Simulated assay, not measured.
Amino acid sequence: MEKKMNSSGSNPSIPQEIIFEIFSWLPVKSLMRFKCVIKFFNSLVSGSDFTDSYRCRSMTHHGGGTKLFFHEEKGFYMAEQKEDGKISVTLFQTEKLDGLHCYSGSCLDCVNGLFCVWEPICVRRAAIFNPTTREVRFLPDLNKEVSWCNYSLGFESEEKKYKVLLSTEHVREGCRKIWVLTLGEDESWREIQSISPDIVYIMPSVCINGVIYRFVYWSSKANIRSIAAFDIKSEKFNIIALWNSSHYWAGDDKPKLIEVKGNLAVTYSENWFNGYIHLRILEKIKKEDQWKSHIIRLPSIWNGRRLYIHFSLIRIISLCKSSDGDILFIMNLKSGLLCLCYDVTTENWREVEIKGLPQESFIRGGYNYVENLVAFG
Rank of each mutant, 00 (worst) to 15 (best):
Y213D: 00
R225P: 00
K96T: 07
V164W: 00
H278R: 15
K161R: 15
K292Y: 10
C36M: 15
S48N: 11
I227P: 07
L183K: 10
A375V: 09
V37Y: 06
T267C: 06
E371Q: 02
Q16V: 04
L181S: 11
E283C: 09
R225N: 03
M203N: 00
V206Q: 05
M59E: 13
G336T: 10
L313C: 07
L307R: 13
E235W: 15
G174P: 08
P358L: 02
N150W: 00
G113S: 00
F23L: 04
G210S: 00
T133Q: 02
R214V: 06
R214H: 03
M1P: 04
I309A: 13
C320V: 04
N130V: 12
P131D: 02
V45T: 15
L165E: 01
I202G: 04
F138S: 15
W218M: 15
L357N: 04
G174L: 13
N332R: 05
I128M: 08
E83A: 14
G174S: 12
A228K: 03
M78S: 09
I330R: 03
N150E: 09
Y162S: 08
T90S: 11
N274M: 08
Y268C: 03
V28L: 01
L31I: 13
W291L: 12
P27C: 00
L279F: 04
P15H: 03
F129E: 07
K163Y: 00
E270K: 05
K3T: 14
E158V: 14
R137L: 12
R306C: 12
G174M: 12
K86Q: 11
S152G: 00
L328M: 02
K284N: 10
I281F: 02
S188E: 14
R350F: 06
M5W: 03
P12I: 01
A229N: 02
Y217G: 08
T94F: 00
K287G: 12
L153C: 02
S167I: 03
V123Y: 15
L307V: 14
F76C: 05
A79W: 03
